[in-house]
C-alpha cells in the first residue's frame, strides 16, 4: 500500500521535473553541499577511476557529512565499491588503478603526493564484503591494529572497549584466546568492525558488510551502525536497497553507462540526496526505476 503510494509520488515527481532534471540535480547537489559544508568530512569533485586506462567511474561530485551514514546503492558494476575504495586509498593496491579529480578529507586532498596512504588508512577504517579475520585469536585480531600503530595504552582495555563498542564483548569475553575462525560469520564481521574501531578511526567505510550474512546477523550489524554513527561517520556500499533505506541518512545512487558498444561499462553518480527523498521522491527517473524495482 505505502509502496504503491511512494511509487505514485515518485512518478509524479519525475514527470514534473523531466525537462529540467539535470539542472535541478546540480542545484540539489549544490544545496546538499551547502547544507553540509561546515561539517563535510569528504568532499569529492570530478572524481573518476580508471583501471589500466579503462574508465570505471566518472565524474562523481558530492560531499559526505560527519556523523551520518551515507549509503551507495546501484546495480552491479556501477562503481560503488571502486568509489568507496578511493576514500581510504585502498585503490592504490590494485595495479593499474588511477584516481582523477579531487577527494578532500577535512579539506585535505587525499591524493596529494605528500599524503601517506598509511596515515590515511589509520583515520579511515574499512570493513569488507567477506569477513576477513586474521588467523589469530579474537584478542590478537583486535590488538593487531593498535600494536602496529604503536599505541601504548593498556591493550586489554583497548580490546575490551573495541569489542564492547561492536557489541561483541558479552559473546566472546570468555574465549578471547580462541581462534577467530571459530566464530559465526556474523560474529566475524562484527569482529572486523571491532578491529577497525580499535584504532580509533574517524570514518568507517563498509563495502557490502552484510552480503555474506543471514538476516539476523545483518540486523545486528545495522543496529550497530546506527549506534556507531553517534561517534563515527559511516559510508556503506550495499546491494540491498532496504538496508540503505533502514540505516542511511543520505543515499547516493549510481548507475552504469554502457559505452563503445557495451564493451565499456562506466559508473556514474545519478542522484545524491537524503535517503527519504531518494526512496520517496527521487528526482531522476533512473533512480526511481531502480528503487521501485523496475530495473537493476
Amino acid at each position: 500500500m505505502s509502496e504503491r503510494k511512494r511509487e505514485g509520488e515518485g512518478l509524479e515527481q519525475a514527470a514534473g521535473l523531466d525537462m529540467g532534471t539535470r539542472l535541478e540535480e546540480r542545484d540539489e547537489r549544490a544545496g546538499a553541499d551547502a547544507e553540509t559544508v561546515d561539517e563535510a568530512i569528504f568532499s569529492l569533485s570530478g572524481v573518476g577511476v580508471t583501471y589500466s586506462g579503462a574508465q570505471a567511474v566518472e565524474d562523481v561530485s558530492f560531499g559526505l557529512a560527519t556523523n551520518e551514514i551515507t549509503a551507495f546503492i546501484g546495480p552491479s558494476g556501477c562503481g560503488k565499491s571502486t568509489l568507496i575504495r578511493c576514500l581510504n586509498r585502498m585503490n592504490d593496491l590494485i595495479p593499474g588503478a588511477e584516481v582523477e579529480g579531487e577527494v578532500l578529507y577535512h579539506d585535505q586532498d587525499l591524493y596529494d603526493p605528500k599524503i601517506d596512504p598509511v596515515q590515511v588508512r589509520k583515520r579511515i577504517g574499512m570493513v569488507f564484503q567477506k569477513p576477513n579475520p586474521f588467523p589469530k585469536s579474537i584478542y590478537d585480531n583486535i590488538a593487531f591494529g593498535p600494536k602496529v600503530l604503536g599505541v601504548k595504552d593498556d591493550m586489554d582495555e583497548t580490546v575490551e572497549r573495541a569489542l564492547r563498542r561492536a557489541s561483541l564483548w558479552d559473546e566472546v569475553k570468555d574465549r578471547l584466546k580462541s581462534n577467530a575462525f571459530g566464530m559465526s560469520g556474523g560474529q566475524q564481521q562484527r569482529l572486523c568492525i571491532a578491529r577497525a574501531l580499535a584504532v580509533s578511526p574517524d570514518v568507517i567505510l563498509m563495502d557490502e558488510p552484510c552480503s555474506a550474512l543471514d538476516p539476523i546477523s545483518t540486523g545486528r550489524i545495522e543496529d550497530l551502525m546506527l549506534e556507531l554513527k553517534q561517534s563515527y561517520s559511516i559510508v556503506i556500499v550495499t546491494h540491498n536497497m532496504h538496508q540503505a533505506a533502514r540505516v542511511s541518512d543520505r543515499t547516493a545512487f549510481f548507475t552504469v553507462d554502457l559505452r563503445a558498444g557495451e564493451s565499456q561499462r562506466v559508473g556514474k553518480l545519478v542522484e545524491f540526496a537524503p535517503t527519504e527523498q531518494i526512496f520517496t521522491s527521487p528526482r531522476d527517473r533512473r533512480t526511481e526505476e531502480y528503487v521501485t524495482g523496475k530495473f537493476g
Binding site: R123, M126, F128, N132, P135, L149
Partner: peptide, 10 residues
Amino acid sequence: IREGSLALGA
C-alpha cells in the same frame, strides 16, 4: 588478509 591489515593503517 593483506587488505584487512592495510586498512587498519599497517
